[in-house]
């Protein structure tokens, strides 16, 4: 007999060891995420996948599904929490969408649209994060980093290069490049690495394409992140 839990009242089947998020996506239900990637173990840092399971707030990506649980996700309460998390992510970095090449293809921005984030609500940190344009093919704009560690994980676990790492703690946490000089040009990073294609925001940008696809005709100008992620899930299964 298949085991199942209830997601917003809908039965969702799951296999042993599957997280709430994986099972939900597989069954065609959308739970948002930024740091989660189906090819990597759960990271649990962005907290956008927050759900209420058996009365407690948990990260859906890092919590194994349990038989008979009642999970709340797409509710005004949970979506309000997500909006608050997004607002904190926005004020913590320097996210100026109008001048960002990733605008329209950015998952952070798309989630802002999805959860109708209209204001930053909090005070901006305006941190100082110099860009690294040393590499011939790829620009690093640290201003937009949300510390999801997807590039860290992809470079270390798939590309076998360990080009990126997070360093510092708390508010001083930041992304660094694994080279004596700290410059991307002095690593063996290549534009064909998985790490070069996995950033959900606008930190790792390929030089050249720029605004070849104009603003207004990009991924999340055409459809919501909810629609795109569910479509991608269906295509990959």
């Amino acid at each position: 007999m298949t085991r199942q839990f209830l997601l917003d009242g809908q039965p969702v089947p799951f296999e042993d060891g599957q997280s709430i998020l994986e099972a939900a996506r597989q069954a065609g239900h959308y739970i948002p995420s930024l740091c989660w990637h189906k090819d990597f173990p759960a990271h649990g840092s962005c907290k956008l996948c927050i759900v209420k399971a058996a009365g407690r707030h948990v990260s859906a990506c890092a919590t194994p599904a349990r038989e008979g649980w009642e999970v709340e996700s797409n509710t005004p309460e949970m979506n309000g929490e997500r909006r608050g998390l997004l607002q904190m992510l926005f004020v913590e970095g320097n996210h100026f969408c109008p001048s960002c090449e990733k605008s329209g293809n950015c998952e952070l921005q798309a989630l802002g649209y999805e959860y109708e984030m209209l204001s930053p609500r909090f005070r901006h940190f305006y941190p100082e994060r110099p860009v690294d344009a040393s590499h011939p093919d790829v620009l690093l704009d640290f201003n937009r980093c949300i510390f999801c560690e997807l590039c860290v994980r992809a470079s270390r676990d798939v590309d076998g290069k360990a080009v990126f790492a997070l360093t510092g703690r708390g508010i001083d946490k930041h992304l660094v490049v694994n080279a004596e000089s700290g410059r991307l040009a002095d690593t063996d990073f290549s534009k064909d690495d998985l790490a070069a294609h996995i950033c959900p925001v606008g930190v790792i940008l390929h030089k050249g394409p720029g605004f070849a696809v104009p603003i207004g005709e990009r991924d999340y100008d055409r459809e919501s992140i909810r629609q795109k992620k569910l479509r991608d899930e269906e295509a990959s299964s």
Binding site: F90, N94, H95, F96, P98, S99, L118, S119, P120, H124, Y126
Partner: peptide, 8 residues
């Protein structure tokens, strides 16, 4: 809303 271009 967030300072925009001048805030750069």
């Amino acid at each position: 809303v967030n300072g925009g271009l001048p805030a750069q």
